[in-house]
Amino acid sequence: MMAYMNPGPHYSVNALALSGPSVDLMHQAVPYPSAPRKQRRERTTFTRSQLEELEALFAKTQYPDVYAREEVALKINLPESRVQVWFKNRRAKCRQQRQQQKQQQQPPGGQAKARPAKRKAGTSPRPSTDVCPDPLGISDSYSPPLPGPSGSPTTAVATVSIWSPASESPLPEAQRAGLVASGPSLTSAPYAMTYAPASAFCSSPSAYGSPSSYFSGLDPYLSPMVPQLGGPALSPLSGPSVGPSLAQSPTSLSGQSYGAYSPVDSLEFKDPTGTWKFTYNPMDPLDYKDQSAWKFQIL
């Protein structure tokens, strides 16, 4: 009977010793046993002879290597770790002494450095960015050149030099007046198309007034536009458009034309069986010896 009264063996659950049927240790109110408190290391007290050895090595170098620390530790009968900690504390003490010396050398008012006064946003004049500046400075420094007289040679050079070769001289006033084509001369031969040399188009003023001019072949195509416009036809070669000034309004060009419109200028042929003959000019830059190549039959 006494065997049943004795408590059973101890069981360990999660490293906790349980005594038989008792489960009081598993209750929430019972805390787990805490780790033992780490003991504080005792402070090391250095003797005068030990301090002399350490100070002598510190005077040589503030960062001794492990071999120098072990050698000193053997002399003063201390572990190497204590020597390492002593050098660490000695360097910190040396830095603190240097900072105190710097503070003593500075004057009393030198510690508080005078800061520059901050400028207020409204006091300083700042350039306004509302208006974009002129990058080319046209509004201040540029002045347009004065327009020359209508009959000045410089204007003629600016007008005619675009179309004339570089080897030719500017046309005088008398020749510029001949550039304007007359109405009857352009409409006299509506079906004849003559190819003149390129030099005649640039230099010869008579080429624009003769039936064999460069633009005589364009007349049949330009004249039928007159009834559609409801007024006189516009002429690209009329009046002052080739003269001194090219800047004319469309209203000033509306009254200039080749001449009176005639039914002869239409595109319809009077004789459907007729042929169109292209007159060959020996001055043509295209060297075609066979003139029969310039004739064709309209079917």
Rank of each mutant, 00 (worst) to 15 (best):
Y221P: 01
T45I: 10
P285A: 10
P107F: 03
P197W: 12
S235T: 09
R176E: 04
R82V: 08
I162R: 01
W86T: 15
A166W: 12
V131Q: 05
P64S: 14
Y214L: 09
R37Y: 09
S266C: 05
A68C: 10
P153M: 10
Q291M: 09
S161Q: 07
K289T: 04
D134C: 12
Y208W: 15
I298S: 00
Q104I: 05
E70M: 11
P31K: 04
S22V: 10
K120D: 01
A207Q: 04
A3F: 15
L246C: 02
S49T: 04
R43G: 15
H10W: 15
P240N: 08
S216K: 12
D130Q: 06
P224S: 13
D284P: 12
N89P: 13
M5W: 09
E80S: 08
P282M: 10
E268R: 09
L18Y: 07
T155G: 04
Y191Q: 01
Q50V: 12
S254A: 06
Q256R: 11
A247C: 11
S245K: 07
G259R: 13
V85K: 12
L179M: 01
W294C: 00
V23D: 01
Q256A: 10
Y261H: 03
A293T: 09
T129H: 12
T155M: 10
L179E: 01
Y258K: 03
G239L: 10
S49I: 03
A247P: 04
Y214M: 02
F201I: 05
L57V: 02
G255M: 12
T275R: 11
Q175I: 13
P33H: 08
T61W: 08
S212E: 02
P165T: 03
G110F: 01
A121G: 05
R37G: 02
G178P: 06
S241Y: 13
E70N: 08
T159S: 03
M2N: 00
S238Y: 11
L136P: 06
A247H: 08
G239S: 04
A73I: 15
S204M: 12
D140L: 12
V83T: 13
E173F: 13
L57R: 12
P165Y: 15
P21R: 07
S257C: 06
S169M: 10
S216M: 10
T154G: 03
K118R: 02
N89Q: 13
R95G: 13
P224I: 13
S12W: 12
N281L: 14
W276H: 00
Q106P: 04
C132G: 06
A73H: 14
L18K: 00
T45G: 15
S254T: 05
E173A: 11
P116E: 01
K93M: 14
G209N: 04
Q99E: 03
T123S: 02
M26N: 01
G151F: 08
P197F: 11
Y63H: 13
S292L: 15
P147E: 08
C132T: 09
P127L: 09
N281T: 15
S238Q: 09
L186G: 01
P107L: 07
D134R: 09
G209S: 06
Q39D: 09
Y142L: 09
S141N: 07
R41Q: 13
A117Q: 02
L237A: 02
N14G: 05
Q100Y: 07
P236S: 06
P170N: 04
N14W: 15
W294F: 01
R91Y: 15
S143N: 03
P170M: 08
G110I: 08
A189I: 13
Q103T: 02
L54A: 13
I162N: 00
A117P: 05
Q103V: 06
R91V: 13
R48T: 09
D65C: 05
P9H: 07
D290Y: 15
L179P: 05
S262I: 13
G217C: 10
S19F: 15
L237Q: 03
L146H: 11
A56E: 08
T273P: 02
S169R: 05
K88F: 12
P190N: 03
A15T: 06
P272S: 09
L186F: 07
S249P: 04
L54M: 08
T273Y: 11
H27D: 04
P170H: 08
R41M: 11
S241N: 06
D287C: 12
L25F: 07
Y32F: 11
M225Y: 07
Q100K: 07
P282Y: 09
A156V: 13
V13K: 01
P149H: 11
Y288G: 09
P79R: 07
P145N: 02
A196S: 03
L57K: 11
S249T: 01
S19K: 11
S241C: 10
P197A: 06
S188C: 09
Q100N: 07
D219Y: 14
P7Y: 13
M225R: 11
V180F: 04
P133H: 06
K60D: 10
P282K: 09
S152H: 07
Q297T: 12
Y191N: 01
E80H: 10
F87H: 15
T273G: 01
F269T: 00
Y208Q: 02
L54I: 15
E80W: 14
E53W: 10
T47L: 11
T129K: 04
P147K: 06
G151Q: 07
V23I: 13
R37W: 13
Y288L: 09
V83H: 15
S203I: 11
Q248W: 15
A114H: 02
R41E: 13
K60W: 09
P250R: 14
Q228C: 13
R48F: 12
T154P: 07
S139H: 06
M5D: 00
G230I: 13
P33E: 05
P107R: 12
K102G: 01
F215L: 02
Q106C: 06
S182A: 09
T187R: 08
K60T: 10
F58A: 12
E70T: 10
Q96P: 11
P149N: 06
S203G: 06
G8T: 03
D65W: 14
N281F: 14
N89Y: 13
G209W: 15
R40T: 11
Y195L: 11
Y63D: 15
A56G: 09
P172F: 13
N14Q: 11
K270E: 12
D130P: 02
S22M: 09
T155R: 08
M2H: 00
S169K: 11
P31N: 10
A207E: 01
Y142G: 07
Y258T: 03
L25S: 01
G217K: 08
T61M: 09
F278K: 01
Q256S: 07
V131C: 06
Y214C: 04
Y142W: 01
H10R: 08
S213P: 08
G255E: 00
A293Y: 08
A35F: 09
V72F: 12
R91T: 13
P250C: 06
P153F: 15
V13Q: 00
F46V: 09
Q99M: 09
G122N: 09
V83W: 13
A56F: 06
S164P: 01
A56R: 08
A260L: 13
P184A: 06
R176I: 10
Q291N: 03
W294I: 01
L253Y: 08
E70F: 11
G259C: 10
T44C: 13
S210G: 06
W294S: 00
S257A: 09
Y63C: 15
V72Y: 15
G255C: 09
A35D: 07
K277T: 11
P127N: 12
L16C: 00
L286A: 01
R69K: 09
A35V: 04
E80Y: 06
D284H: 13
G151A: 04
Q101F: 11
S139C: 08
V85M: 15
S212R: 12
S34Q: 04
